[in-house]
Design a protein around this nucleic acid. Sequence first.
DNA 1: CCCGATTCCTGTAGGC
DNA 2: TGCCTACAGGAATCGG
Length: 271
Amino acid sequence: MPELPEVETTRRGIAPHVEGLQVQVVRIRHRGLRWPIPQGLEERVAGQTVLSVGRRAKYLLLQLGSGTLLIHLGMSGSLRLVDPLLPPGRHDHVDLVFESGVALRFSDARRFGAVLWIEGDPAQHKLLAELGPEPLSELVSGEYLFARSRGRRQAVKTFLMDNRILVGVGNIYANEALFDAGIDPRRAAGVISLVRYERLADCVKVVLARAIAQGGTTLRDFVGGDGKPGYFQQQLQVYGREGQPCVRCATPLLRVVLGQRASVYCPRCQR
DNA sequence: CCCGATTCCTGTAGGC
DNA sequence: TGCCTACAGGAATCGG
């Protein structure tokens, strides 16, 4: 599923092919995503030039002349460059057809994604206004996480996945970063020391940067289409490995549910 | 304010 | 082989 590295990989993949180009036609075949695609979006977008392709958290932001097209890939979404004549599949909900004769095609089987039109400053939009800092920015540090976690009794893993604290850490990378940092995902966020948060902040950055460098966990499917883990999967140390031996000490990995999410950890290495 | 539970959807994996 | 069910998961929103 697309996490931040996959979204960033998508951004880098499409930007050179659409920036500076005019959208000729917008074709919408299914408006029922997480929120309905707004009526009239076709008319607002057609004829405009893509000034830039940006990203905030897991949201892609196509900056156009008079507004911003916000795209979220949800869990099963993808954006691919295709020949507009290629017959759309069942889950190919939106095409942006460019003057260059290429189409940007949005597909999303589970329809947890979103395509919205924003006028004015996107940072003020309801979906973006309350978001915490980007994980790879210097704003996210051990000191920051330590300060924000004081007084909180929730598990450190759910704290780490809270978009108001920091963005871009989904379930896969939360599990991996906590393993790398040697922290038990069930521990109360508010009682973890500054030193351990320094380590955790480092591990979050390293694991995300590595995944981005490798084109995300789902690179293969970013091109091919469906959302199974790709290259980075071979390097996952705990995610999806319940019952298998810890790569460090061979103790069988345990699974617990935190915040309705599967959490896998090593009971010996993570305290 | 804090935090866990619920909800959307459908492809896939596992059980029989 | 094929049917059936449980599960996965981002994040807004609800409920306590």
